[in-house]
Design a binder for these strands. Sequence first.
DNA 1: GATGCGTGGGC
DNA 2: TGCCCAAGCAT
Length: 344
Amino acid sequence: MPASAASQLVDPRGATGRLLAHYDAHARPLPWRSPPGSPPPHPYLVWLSEVMLQQTTVASVEPRFHRFVARWPTLQSLAEAPEEQIFAEWAGLGYYARARNLIACARQVAERGGFPTHEAELRKLPGLGAYTAAAIAAIAFGRRAVVIDTNVARVIARLHALDRPLAALGPDIRRLADSLTPDDRPGDFAQAMMDLGATLCRPRSPGCAACPLSADCRAFARGEPQRFPAPAPKRAPRQRFGTAWWIERAGSVWLVRRPKHGLLGGMAALPGTEWGEQGPPGGSGPVIRHAFTHFALDLRVATASEPVGEGWWQPVARLGEAGLPTLYMKAAEAILAGRIRDAA
DNA sequence: GATGCGTGGGC
DNA sequence: TGCCCAAGCAT
């Protein structure tokens, strides 16, 4: 790929060199990362961490990554693990399609005897999109790949003072990121850009005084770098209502598994009604308020006596092992907290 | 290109 | 408290 006209605006080698020097001195030590300039981590660890990090913060991922690796130290062990155990280990991390794709990907890769080492082949695996395929190619295999996540996109938008929303900047961001990406150390470069976005070039209150790219940055030169790029337009929040059933016998509660696809797909759950726009539902029992990305849910947790649908009895004392998503953990906690209050 | 898909933390 | 945001992907 030839250097684009953008290289007249930002000197690729100069800016890239300053960025990598800053990374060599300030790279955050992370459990899935090897120090700058050293051999890369095992592709299994790069893949696992990258999938966990999709739309999820480092702070949330760290403890979960340790647990996953302790339980399934190799790709082969993960590929052979029962699905329910993997779902349970993922519970609370969110975006559960990632767990489904993780399982499918592990099995495919085990079958073929290892990860492909080129971006285009990685891109075909379940759960690996443009970002993750490029990140694994660069970080695990040292391939030159244009790695663009939300951090990189924001850094690029500020370097060039692009003030439209990121959704409208895709092709521009890609071209400019390409022109900045070096042939050497592409993995370190990608991680350096992401570190920069996470620690200095933050969405709000960017730390330009310590930034190795401030001399290259048009947004900095204009002042108010936090104005770039423009925020995404907001969507009107929606409200839904539903009822879940707490069915308990002899110290166990009746759980079901949600359908494979859609919201919380494949995860353990309390049985309940569909969630609709009409409400709030009648009946008695605590109401849980839970904010999903695209709607808010008021869920009444009502007690019932007869098991509903296919499911299993889960001992209440071991509810934590059931792998319930956060919504249902909150529902269970509301029931159990009410019980403690009643006893007092 | 837009929409559906979780959750926790920061301010 | 409410809002914004996070190492995105699939359709």
